[in-house]
Simulated scan of single mutants.
Amino acid sequence: MVKVLLNGTVLADSDKTVIVEGNHYFPPETVNKDALSDSSTRTSCPWKGVASYYNATIGGKTEVNDVAWYYPETKEKANNIKGYVAFYKDKVTFE
Rank of each mutant, 00 (worst) to 15 (best):
E29M: 10
H24D: 15
S52R: 13
R42N: 06
E95V: 14
G22C: 04
Y88P: 12
I58G: 00
N32Y: 06
Y88M: 02
D15Y: 07
S14W: 02
S40G: 08
K3P: 03
K82Q: 15
S39G: 05
A78K: 13
N23Y: 10
V2N: 10
F94P: 09
T43C: 09
L6V: 03
V2P: 00
A12Q: 03
A56C: 06
G8N: 10
S39D: 05
G59T: 02
V31R: 01
A51M: 07
D38V: 06
F26C: 06
K77L: 14
L36T: 09
V92I: 15
T57L: 04
K91M: 08
G60Y: 05
T17G: 01
V20W: 08
A68R: 12
Y88C: 03
F87L: 11
F26K: 07
V50P: 08
G59C: 05
A51L: 08
P28A: 12
I19T: 15
A12T: 10
L36P: 05
E63Q: 13
T17C: 15
L11Q: 03
F26A: 08
L6Q: 01
N32Q: 04
K33P: 02
T43S: 15
S44P: 03
N79V: 11
I19D: 11
E95K: 14
T74P: 11
V85T: 13
N65S: 13
P28Y: 02
V64C: 00
Y54V: 03
D13F: 04
K48F: 11
Y53V: 11
P28N: 02
N7D: 13
A68N: 06
N80F: 15
K91N: 04
